[in-house]
Amino acid sequence: MTIGTDHAPLFADVLFWMLAVGSVLAGWRVFRADSMVRAAYWLLASFAGTAGILLLLHARFLGLILLLMMAGEMTIMAAFMVMFMMNPAGLNPMNMVHQHRTAIIAGVGAFLGLAAVGVFGEFPARPLLDASQVTADLGVELLGDSMMVFETAGVALLATMIGSIALAAHRGRFGPADEGSEPPALVPEAETVRPGDSRDEEQS
């Protein structure tokens, strides 16, 4: 049963096929591109394709918020990849791939398995009819029944913020982490040995 927008079903189908094929191709290009920035922005293109399809499925808010989130996230991912990869811009084409065959088998296997579930599985046919109040329903849901999900997500995000900064930041409130911070003494009163001390070398 094909679903079209109010007065152009053919137009919606063509758009859907463009977005779907574009998204999958962009996904494939992600792991083929040499330059890290291109890989990140091919992933962003794939997400944009998915966001387009979500728009066609009348999940307008989800599609747009996915696009908004992914713009920031993919740029950060590109920046981090460029920061740590040996050859960030792909000037020396090399393939950083290992256990290639098992990966292909696993990928194709996952695809076939899930596709089979999708095609042969029976799913209840209860299509969405009135799509005007979608975002409002989500709002009511968030504040009403799923308020726990909403607040725990808040706490989880706080934990993420503190955790990621504690892990990543080198310079905390009391100065650089590895400077002057002495390892705890094994015996409570024993004099602690600071890393880099002359005595430290003899012992290690």
Partner: peptide
């Protein structure tokens, strides 16, 4: 499923 499959391939390879 295709997107997921590519993701699995990418994560493993």
């Amino acid at each position: 499923a295709a997107l997921f499959g590519i993701g699995v391939y990418g994560a493993l390879s």
